[in-house]
């Protein structure tokens, strides 16, 4: 049994994410601060909300800093959760967590925004989250921003929405998906399971 925590910014549906983790055998706690000792094998930053309120909820309501709390624990950031790994976002004024160099920029207004729906993945390189996932797999996106890492090396998969959208990033113990694995049917389930496998190690 692997025990993980979802950090709740207080902004919407984390039920689906919790449910998807439990379906593949995890026990899940929902936490709203980092003041108790970290006894979890993995931490998830969910994908619903706005950049500034979410950053504030991570930064301002705990005596312990998020990165001190996390240490080497694997972290999966989904959509907004992944965007917060970066230094800053055009969605807000707040600083991001800064664990990955780069920024978050708005999708060009020549496209329909939000980018909403099922897009296929182009796998760039092997990664822990992508084990057993076929090139061309369909995943569900709903976002108005995309990440722009300083180094493309951390991108393991991208999606073509007229422009290239980084879809999966991996950097040390930080894993991010721009799409929602918890909403991406059987392919998403593989990725959730992969993350839990990383947590078990």
């Amino acid at each position: 049994m692997v025990n993980v925590a979802i950090f709740d910014y207080g902004a919407g549906n984390i039920f689906s994410l919790k449910n998807s983790l439990e379906r593949v055998g995890a026990t899940v706690d929902v936490i709203t601060d980092f003041d108790k000792p970290n006894e979890y094998s993995g931490i998830l930053l969910p994908g619903v909300g706005n950049f500034d309120p979410a950053m504030n909820s991570i930064r301002d309501f705990s005596k312990t800093q998020f990165l001190d709390y996390v240490g080497n624990t694997p972290v999966l950031g989904i959509c907004l959760g992944m965007e917060m790994f970066f230094e800053k976002s055009q969605e807000g004024q707040e600083k991001g967590l800064g664990v990955i160099n780069g920024e978050v920029i708005i999708l060009p207004n020549s496209m329909k925004v939000p980018h909403m729906g099922w897009n296929d993945l182009e796998i760039k390189k092997p990664g822990k989250i992508l084990e057993g996932v076929d090139d061309g797999s369909w995943v569900y996106f709903v976002h108005s921003y995309r990440v722009k890492p300083t180094s493309d090396d951390i991108i393991t998969a991208e999606s073509n929405y007229g422009i290239k959208v980084p879809a999966v990033v991996e950097h040390e113990n930080f894993f991010g998906t721009q799409f929602h694995p918890e909403k991406s049917s059987t392919v998403g389930k593989i990725m959730i399971k992969n993350f839990l496998d990383v947590c078990k190690r």
């Binding site: 902004a11 919407g12 549906n13 619903v48 909300g49 907004l80 909403m116 709903v142 976002h143 108005s144």
Partner: peptide, 8 residues
Amino acid sequence: MELFGRQC
């Protein structure tokens, strides 16, 4: 929109 994001 401000609370939950536009996508909701």
